[in-house]
Design a protein around this nucleic acid. Structure first.
Length: 206
DNA sequence: ATATCGATTATCT
DNA sequence: GATAATCGATATG
């Protein structure tokens, strides 16, 4: 499987968010893998909800670096969230990965999540359907993964394209923010069981 | 099925 | 000192 190119990420986060749906997040050489089914775009200084709006700090400096790198931050005293930087070096912007469909490494994911391994759809959903959950399942932390180059197969964390293309994509406002809360910048694969939130929301309702 | 609430800490004002 | 790109538990219909 091929890793996505630098150029893929050197674009507007809205376009990258859309095109990341169906791609595969890979841990190491494939010990754990999940198909990306839900994303959100975060823009630059003009996007009040984006960390980039606060200006460049030691926490968010990856956002201003070259495209295709992991921006991992700690939130609510408990969880990590994984983003991929977009746009050229010097320009901020990123995509938040919100949900994965597990493809490989079920047992390790379950262990990391403190769950019994089960192949029931109910349980599989709990592994990676949410930004905090997917990071816990794939052992993504700031210390370990922040700044990783996700365009290299040699990285501990990278993104692959297996040729899969989603059938239909839905766009809604982003989840869990208070500023710029109405902007339609959340993207997900229509009807996919692993999209976060209650069942109705997966069909595009809110 | 939906609503509300508390946990817990890095980061910024 | 307040806030936060979340989650899981608990309460209520």
């Amino acid at each position: 499987m091929k890793a996505l190119s630098r150029r893929f990420f050197d674009r507007d986060p809205r376009q990258v968010s859309r095109d990341l749906l169906g791609k595969i997040l890979v841990r190491g050489r494939g010990e754990m893998m999940g198909r990306i089914v839900e994303t959100e775009a975060y823009l630059g200084a003009d996007d009040a909800a984006a960390h980039a709006a606060a200006g460049r700090t030691s926490r968010n400096s990856v956002l201003w670096g070259p495209p295709g790198h992991a921006y991992v931050y700690f939130i609510y005293g408990n969880y990590f969230c994984l983003n991929v930087s977009c746009l050229p070096d010097g320009v901020a912007g990123c995509v938040l990965l919100r949900a994965l469909e597990p493809l490989a490494g079920f047992e390790e994911m379950a262990r990391n999540r403190g769950m019994e391994t089960s192949f029931e759809p109910r349980s599989l959903r709990l592994l990676t359907s949410g930004p905090g959950r997917l990071c816990e399942a794939m052992e993504i932390t700031r210390e370990r993964d922040n700044g990783a180059d996700m365009t290299l197969r040699s990285s501990q964390l990278w993104i692959a394209d297996d040729g899969h293309r989603p059938r239909k994509i839905v766009v809604t406002p982003r989840v869990g923010i208070t500023k710029s809360a109405e902007a339609p910048l959340r993207y997900f694969i229509y009807g996919n069981e692993f999209v976060s939130g209650p069942k109705g929301a997966r069909a595009g309702r809110r």
